[in-house]
Amino acid sequence: MVAPPDNDVLWARALHVKHNGSPALSGVSLGVRVGEILAVGGPRGSGKTTLLRCLSGQLLPQQGEVWFNSTPVHTMGPHTRERLRRDRFGWIDPAPVLVPELNAWENAALPLMLRGVGRRQAKTTALEWLERLDIGGCARRRPYALLQAERQRVAIARALVPAPTVLFADEPTAPLHRVESASVLRTLTTAARSHGITVVLATHDADTAALADRKVSLLDGRRVNTVHLPPATETESEGRAACSLSA
């Protein structure tokens, strides 16, 4: 094993992942620098989520290496990876997955409480972040009473509250309308830059990727320089004839 370069907080080499035999990643290598916002682009099914889950230690690649701050993640046991995820990483799902029984500030404070921070301090920090994300007014409401955009902001606050080293955002604006999506992304990137948090952002949207410092594109589980789909070889009428049952 070769130790990765020092200025990379995360470093992946030749990742190969198959989900029950169907290939998801085939030989992806990647370096994430400290404090940058890295966009991972590509259409649906190109392996973005799988790559993020490999990098964040939720999924072990069948082949390849993942290093975090010069520590190998791919050789860690499940408990160590769990602790790493809890203490160093943040994760934002495409749709907000909040704990429905807890209200907004309790949801946001949960990661801090899981780390053993006292209730009062966790509450103060969570309320600060909710205020910063413009949802301080609904801190006492349960998730069912929030709009989807507000829930996603709570999920972002929950990911930011423990001040993670790396924040993984898997299409964080997928369920939102464009106006909300732009403002959510702006708050996310601003907060990350002001707190020096490294962000790995999966997106299939070119506008979203424009907010990032650097962009990496995936296509069919491989890293490509430009996502450029080959033109269809057959014209439409030929395709129809070929699929016709009577032919």
């Binding site: 939720q58 408990h79 769990e82 602790r83 790493l84 995820r85 809890r86 203490d87 990483f89 994760w91 799902d93 997955v97 909040l98 704990v99 429905p100 029984e101 949960l110 990661p111 899981l114 929950r158």
Partner: peptide, 16 residues
Amino acid sequence: ADTTAALLGLGAPATL
């Protein structure tokens, strides 16, 4: 199951 998965995704230990 959803909430449990979300909690595990946060890094909540299974012992919790």
